[in-house]
């Protein structure tokens, strides 16, 4: 296993009687991207939430290594970058205040997050509650990359973004992978993504 990598096997999760994930497996190493595909309801978001440590798995194994060190679930939860359509920030706080709050929680300087927000042309003073869905997705990108994570989990990464927003997001993803980070990206459609090193089709 390489210095920074993520692998999982036999990952299963059910909600009540509905088995959403049955033995999902995949791996990705530094600089690579694992593309997760499947129709609605195939378990893409559930898999990403399990990988992030936001949902417990019933069976299987998830192993994440960063700089050669195996991460426990609690460490993995705090170190990954996570982006998902249902992830919200604080609606009363502005773009800048949300970035500053999470920078304080993560113990990093807010400037890199604010710089990403500027790259996305986000209005620093506008509250989350007054952002359009596309602007929220832009701020989710800044939030996910705020602490310069090595492991990036992206659920529907370009949802609601316009052409300009998508171009910026793609550039950020490319920079992340070029700098030795890795990513798992889930989408119901086949996305033309850079540096795909593995694919997982949950429809099968």
């Amino acid at each position: 296993m390489r210095a920074t990598s993520l692998s999982f096997s036999g990952v299963s999760r059910r909600f009540g009687r509905v088995a959403v994930l049955r033995g999902a497996a995949g791996e990705v190493a530094a600089g690579g991207l694992l593309a997760v595909r499947g129709p609605n309801g195939s378990g893409k978001s559930t898999l990403l939430r399990c990988l992030a440590g936001l949902l417990a798995i019933e069976r299987g194994e998830i192993r994440a290594r960063e700089e050669g060190r195996e991460l426990a679930t609690a460490d993995r939860r705090r170190r990954i970058g996570f982006l998902a359509p249902d992830l919200a920030l604080y609606e009363e706080l502005s773009v800048a205040e949300n970035v500053e709050l999470f920078a304080r929680l993560r113990g990093v300087a807010p400037e890199p997050g604010l710089a990403i927000a500027r790259r996305f042309a986000l209005p620093a003073g506008r509250p989350w509650g007054a952002l359009s869905s596309g602007m929220r997705q832009r701020l989710r990108w800044a939030w996910a990359l705020l602490h310069a994570p090595r492991l990036l989990l992206l659920d529907e990464p370009f949802q609601n973004l316009d052409a300009e927003g998508e171009a910026t997001a793609r550039a950020l993803l490319d920079e992340h992978l070029a700098s030795g980070g890795l990513a798992v990206a889930a989408s119901p459609v086949s996305l033309p993504l850079p540096r795909i090193t593995g694919e997982l089709d949950l429809a099968r």
Partner: peptide
């Protein structure tokens, strides 16, 4: 309810 719990879970230690 406002779906901010995930962001908080991912960024801060539970005891904090």
């Amino acid at each position: 309810e406002s779906r901010t719990a995930a962001a908080l879970r991912l960024a801060a230690r539970p005891s904090a």
